[in-house]
Design a protein around this nucleic acid. Structure first.
Lengths: 198, 198
DNA sequence: CCTTAAAACGAATGCTCGTTCTTCTTTGAC
DNA sequence: GTCAAAGAAGAACGAGCATTCGTTTTAAGG
């Protein structure tokens, strides 16, 4: 006898991803709360039961999408931090802003990120996850600021935590401008930054 | 005969405000989409019919709250722009950030602003309103940048639009950090800004 | 005090939602 | 081929939603 799974691991993972992809499209289009489970189910081309096998509630689905979006952003910031040769703080912001510009389009990550931010105000578990992720991202900029200070590009007594926060803040600040008003493109923004921060 | 109103103008305005206040509290607590009309009605201590006399739909109520929140922020930025003697760009950001710190608390304006941003992704009418308001706010910083350039504090060929955008972006950027992670307080942030932008 | 229309009320409505549950199908080991 | 367990399906359900509407209350002009 045996209790082996009836389908391959790969099949299960693919199905799960199929649902996640559908949910992402729906959430991008209508936001978390104007998307019904029926919408996701139809978009995935599956049945109610199938979807509920993989995600036990709508909130589970929202959380999964939120974590994947925040995870993607984290990855980007980590790559900036790991870059060789090390980037100057300004260069790092410039690259982040370029990424943001790409992802603020009609089907960009940041449209969902905005939903996640709003959702985090109501869901403490999500708030903690987002808070940790954003602290880590800010940490990368603090690290860059530290390096710049040690290289003499900043005063020796500079508060690297504060400077890291300012640098990091510019990125979502730019994202909001892009999504809400018709702010400047990444290149222009970067030029402005370089004028302001010598 | 006559068709005079049965109650005073002031009474009508007060009732309307009573509903708006209740809605603001509810929306702050649960967000737009997890607040039911029943919640607002109960919070206002009125009847269904009374509320629907003043706001013909939930969306009307959301729009009214959104416009009032954005309006409050606009007022703040206008005061910064009008300040005498004129503020330097850095000073203006510092003051804006102090305002933000005050309004990111559990019952601060910015918690609703975050909801509004997310809502604007779905509601074109709201998107236009928010977009215009934010363009105007950015404009104030562009104006400050222009003045700084003309005073020789910035290169003569500086792109004031871009610099204004960078300055303005720092404000929502700081707001997000405060609301989502435990970012630095306004004073620390301002100090970081001053170190970075001489 | 009576009339009248605005204002407030709240039961009722119809619909949509997230979720459950029973049934049918597929799968892979034997 | 057979069987048992897992996967998929989708009808059904109850709760909760925004909104409507017929009724009652209120307040001011005559």
């Amino acid at each position: 006898m045996c209790a082996m799974p009836r389908v391959s691991e790969a099949h299960l993972a693919a199905r799960r991803q199929q649902i996640l992809d559908a949910a992402r499209r729906c959430f991008m289009r209508d936001g978390f709360h104007n998307t019904s489970m029926q919408d996701v189910i139809a978009e995935a081309g599956l049945s109610v039961g199938a979807v509920y096998r993989y995600f036990k509630s709508k909130n589970d689905l929202i959380t999964a999408i939120a974590e994947s979006v925040i995870g993607d952003a984290s990855t980007m910031f980590e790559e900036l931090a790991r870059h060789e040769p090390p980037l100057s703080p300004t260069e790092a912001v410039e690259r982040a802003v370029t990424f943001v510009e790409r992802e603020t389009g009609p089907d960009g990550l940041l449209r969902i990120a905005l939903q996640v931010w709003a959702e985090a105000m109501r869901d403490p578990a999500l708030a903690e996850f987002v808070g940790n992720a954003y602290s880590r991202m800010r940490g990368h900029f603090v690290h860059l600021a530290t390096r710049a200070r040690d290289a003499g590009q900043l005063p020796a007594d500079a508060d690297v935590e504060a400077i890291g926060a300012v640098l990091f803040g510019m990125v979502p600040g730019y994202a909001l401008q892009r999504m809400l008003s018709n702010g400047p493109d990444a290149k222009t923004y970067a030029a402005g930054l370089r004028t302001l921060v010598p």
